[in-house]
Design a protein around this nucleic acid. Structure first.
Lengths: 116, 116
DNA sequence: CAAATATTTCAAGAGATATTGAAATGAGAA
DNA sequence: TTCTCATTTCAATATCTCTTGAAATATTTG
């Protein structure tokens, strides 16, 4: 599909949002993602995440690949471990997309949501 | 699995959030959901949604079933059409879950997000 | 260098989801 | 009643996604 001027392909933000939502739409990945958000920019090693989520290293690794592919996390190497950290900008984008969607129809849905 | 005191099954909110995220994690469904949010409580007929998302009636119907199963939308019958409407309470719950997760690690991610 | 550690990659099988088109259902209109 | 319209249900197929375990890779330590 080189040029699809006549098709109704969803726009890029919608596509990206659905990829990111899909990345979070798995209990193991959501658990891992929550742990990373709690950990903050420092991040956590893959091993620590495997333990937190109670899954095998290889299973975890494939889930981390999905989160990475969605751009929700990043990795860096530290010695023999790999440290994963949340990508806050991506999270902000995703939340912004959802909030904007919901506010269009119902501002009251969002009001009072952010109580940081 | 009647009693899983020793297992590390994710808690109910996490499970519910992952089901709802999964329901939104599809371009057709996300498009449909956006249209419903924009339409507001009045909702939209299945036919209108099929046209908006450019998919067949039967394909749309199965996607609506997923959104319904996740509790993100409700249906009512009006003559021979079925009108779908967003469930704002469910949306609020989901956004609240995400925002709380992200605020735990990084309050600044959420700040200034709600500009309704 | 050899051993140990942390993690990823790969391949295979299982399971879940998506897409189609045809048939069924349930109104309302003629 | 019979026709048409709006929508769902069903069954079949196709396509992803998950999970596993074994093997590969990279890095530090002895």
């Amino acid at each position: 599909m080189i040029a699809d001027a006549l098709s109704t392909a969803p726009d890029a933000p919608t596509r990206q949002a659905s990829v990111r939502l899909g990345a979070l739409a798995h209990e193991t990945r959501l658990t891992v993602f929550r742990a990373l958000m709690r950990a903050g920019p420092e991040g956590l090693a893959a091993g620590a995440l495997a333990e937190a989520a109670q899954v095998s290293a290889s299973n975890l690794s494939s889930h981390l690949g999905v989160l990475l592919g969605a751009g929700l996390v990043s990795v860096r190497r530290d010695g023999r471990q790999r440290i994963y950290a949340p990508d806050f900008e991506a999270v902000r984008e995703l939340l912004g997309f959802l909030v904007n969607e919901c506010c269009q129809g119902a501002p009251e849905v969002c009001g009072g949501l952010v109580k940081c």
